[in-house]
Nucleic acid binder design. Structure first.
Lengths: 336, 336
DNA sequence: CTCACCTCGGTAATCGATTACATGGAGCCG
DNA sequence: CGGCTCCATGTAATCGATTACCGAGGTGAG
């Protein structure tokens, strides 16, 4: 069980450790026969190298850390998967952490990543203000890109969609469907997305003359359970609005379930919209109208920015807002 | 941007690096005033330590690697989340890799993890035979636990549910509902789960006198898209069976969608069952009858086994099969 | 008073790979 | 044939933290 080191390979191939290193990495020319000999020895002994030692010497780990609020949310999983894919092509690994929507845990994860000497960090910060200190500290130590959510006052890149505009798409669509009143179900957690979606909602519903009762703006968390509960509250409290706009698909799926449980028909009695376009939003009863986020592209841009930051020319922080698009399904479509 | 090292702290606090190390880690007694002085210096300089150097010296990374076939599948995400939670309590980090259901990529990930000197590995191997060599090699280098799926012939622990018995639960339930014929939609990929579920199906349907036409055993992959396609095939090819048994929930969700698209009512025209009990299986149209897997417990057991393997007493490999349970929902329940 | 022992701190070896620098030999030119 | 360049290889310093080992000073028992 004791590990094979470069010395063992060197001894076996009757060369120096320097030669083994050069033969295997190709960093400098080594004669063909020696390369062959070293390869054979390494193979025979089952040499795997010690990435830790290598990382220490090169001060490069070929690893980037990613911190997301939750890995149970399919939106983040697909973001993670896309990021992993993009990184792989650049020969890098992904070190994934979940902050479980807890700024304290998030700060701890960031500390770990910095201590582990990852080459860079991709993060979707949990909280608009409570995450700031930790993110700023990390950004000061190494290249960092924020995705989806962001904290202000930190000198770093950001990639995401234009949340504000996305609510315009939803509002336009609902107005076209004749909606005059709407409720909004979102998360209590104050982060950039949540805030932009709320301010987008206010702006665009005002523009279109859709009334949003302040008592029908319900804040909980990004989960199916909260959606279910919020729907129950809306049903219990008073006249239903024409539409229930949800800040993400999980909430919307919960709302659909809550409506069904309360005997309310969607889209007959009320329209429901989500946000993210997770795979399951197409399979709910009824399928969900939602805003599509191009995660693949978000991840690719984030990785590109990181790579660039790793290179020599630093460049100023960029803010890339990609265009969202509306996916219309049965939850807002009576089929007329 | 250049990092603060232990030497900087030592110089600043006017002590040796040994003392700094001891003061911060508490490995050996250091006088209170010196500890205080070192703390202050470290704080003031923003010292974060170098986990790489520490790992090299201690040959311990406090990190375990986890390799799963897909992180888009909610079953694996919840397994990952539970594992992360369990590890955190033991002061360890999770290094997550996706093998994307590709044995080649899986082998590569394992090599990386071993090179990175993780303390142990939790893996759900992609393939019953093609994964064997890589898994065996990794298990030879460090503690390894297989979860859910496994390869045989490797001397390692395993934790999962009893797949064979699970199909007994399903078959019993369907027989009770008067099912006489059934189709089975699964994955082509030969891994232990897939095989055990198929053999379980054969055994238990035979026992109960349920007929399964060989032409109605359809093999594709674990995805919604394949489920949809398989349903279309079943509809096109001939008389529908009484029930469609699916090897996982994603396939079942696809089958539901395919049935709806083909105008077939579930559960009125055909019953459908899934496997895994992912969160969305409760929200489909209709909600899905499925087998619940106790992922939390699977992950906890896996972590426990790893911890034990890290300790001194090695102990023989254990095989822990947890009991599955059936969750009955509308997709097999006409409400009569 | 002496010796054994204990506490706290420093010095330097160590983990394993990479790489700056040194070296020996081959080839080439004048 | 001397001296120069170039190539393949070896020697040893290096990355930063931990820890085996050593020593100085203090304490208590005999």
């Amino acid at each position: 069980m004791s590990r094979v080191t470069i010395r063992d390979v060197a001894r076996h191939a009757r060369v120096s450790t320097a030669t083994v290193s050069r033969a295997l990495s190709g960093a400098r020319p080594v004669s063909a026969e020696v390369v062959e000999q070293v390869r054979r020895s390494a193979e025979e002994l089952g040499y795997a190298g010690n990435g830790i030692a290598s990382a220490l010497r090169r001060s490069r780990t070929d690893t980037v850390g990613m911190v997301v609020p939750s890995i149970a949310n399919p939106f983040f999983t697909s973001l993670v998967e896309s990021a992993e894919h993009a990184l792989q092509q650049a020969g890098q690994q992904l070190f994934l952490c979940s902050s479980r929507s807890d700024p304290g845990l998030e700060a701890q994860r960031l500390r770990t990543l910095v201590a582990r000497q990852v080459d860079g960090i991709v993060i979707s910060p949990v909280h608009g203000t409570e995450s700031t200190a930790a993110v700023a500290w990390a950004a000061d130590q190494l290249p960092l890109v924020q995705v989806d959510r962001y904290v202000t006052g930190v000198d770093s890149h950001w990639v995401g969609v234009d949340d504000h505009a996305a609510l315009g798409l939803i509002a336009d669509h609902l107005a076209q469907r004749g909606v005059r009143t709407a409720a909004f179900v979102s998360s209590r957690l104050t982060n950039s997305s949540t805030e932009l979606r709320l301010s987008g909602l206010r702006r665009h519903t005002t523009r279109l003359g859709i009334a949003v009762d302040e008592r029908q703006i319900l804040l909980g968390d990004y989960s199916i359970a909260w959606g279910r509960e919020a729907a129950a509250q809306l049903l219990a409290d008073g006249p239903l609005p024409d539409a229930i706009i949800c800040a993400d698909d999980l909430i919307a799926l919960g709302v659909l379930e809550g409506c069904a449980a309360g005997g309310i028909g969607v889209p007959d009695d009320v329209l429901v919209t989500g946000f993210d376009d997770i795979p399951f939003s197409a399979l709910s009863a009824p399928p969900l109208t939602t805003v599509h986020q191009p995660q693949e592209q978000i991840a690719a841009e984030a990785v590109r920015l990181l790579q660039r930051a790793l290179g020599p020319g630093a460049g100023p922080p960029e803010r890339i807002a990609l265009a969202p698009s509306l996916v219309v399904r049965a939850s807002t479509d009576r089929g007329d």
